[in-house]
């Protein structure tokens, strides 16, 4: 059986000024994978996600979600930004932030009601944060804030999840909790794409990987392509990683 392609990127080129940050990226992400995007700092990992999601405007290229342009498929996609991208001293509660995940399906002007609140509470429970629903977000630890962001994406009930470094600055307990949720998403047939930094954990956490350094170096199943050759091509140094089984 041929698997469906969830995300297809064609000839994507992005530049902030003159120098391209992403050059001519072609990428096909099959449905149901848990994929890591790896690459050195400045490789364009976050930029790739942001361009796919239409936050950044590419110079060239197109993105389709299940064969249709992204703009028509927004409801199928959820995004977990980098934790540091917002001001956590914003006057609001954990529950309120998670509720924001329902705003997209609500559309303009309509306010969230009981149904949306229920969905948000369920998402909070899934990430183990129900007890903190009324907590002002600045009083949450870094790991808790990350879980809130995750819950906000879960509430969207999407098919494809894009996450920008969800493991950054979280402790071991939270990391395990998050990866378990990601694996559950995969089990439910969702596609999860994660910008990831820790090469050691790639074989353990992910089944699909994309090597990126301005250009796409390689993409495919971890067991086939996660090797020293690709790591060296991506990171530019003679990279040796001991793959634990």
């Amino acid at each position: 059986m041929k698997t469906k392609i969830a995300v297809k990127v064609d000839d994507l080129t992005v530049a902030y000024n003159y120098k391209p940050v992403l050059w001519d990226i072609d990428l096909e992400i099959p449905e149901g994978v848990l994929m890591a995007i790896v690459g050195p700092n400045g490789a364009g990992k976050s930029t790739l996600i942001k361009s796919i999601l239409g936050i950044l405007k590419p110079i060239a290229g197109s993105v389709t979600i299940y064969g249709k342009p992204y703009e028509k498929q927004r409801r199928l996609v959820a995004y977990v930004p980098q934790k540091g991208s917002v001001d956590w001293d914003f006057p609001t509660t954990a529950l309120d932030v998670v509720m924001m995940g329902t705003y997209g399906s609500l559309g303009w002007i309509k306010r969230p009601r009981q149904k949306e609140k229920k969905a948000a509470l369920e998402a909070l429970e899934k990430v183990g944060m129900l007890a903190f629903k009324g907590r002002q977000i600045s009083q949450l630890s870094g790991g808790q804030q990350q879980r809130i962001f995750l819950a906000r994406a879960l509430v969207q009930n999407a098919s494809i999840y894009f996450m920008d470094e969800p493991f950054q600055g979280v402790d071991a307990t939270t990391e395990i909790a998050i990866i378990n949720i990601l694996k559950e998403l995969r089990k439910a047939g969702k596609t999860v794409i994660v910008v990831h930094h820790d090469l050691q954990t790639v074989p353990e956490y992910f089944d699909w990987v994309t090597f990126l350094n301005v250009k796409k170096i390689a993409t495919g199943p971890v067991k086939d392509i996660f090797n020293d050759d690709n790591l060296t091509k991506t990171y530019g140094i003679n990279y040796k990683v001991s793959i634990q089984e």
Partner: peptide, 10 residues
Amino acid sequence: FDADYTKTLG
């Protein structure tokens, strides 16, 4: 709170 995220919601 989060302008980029708002954009992704449409």
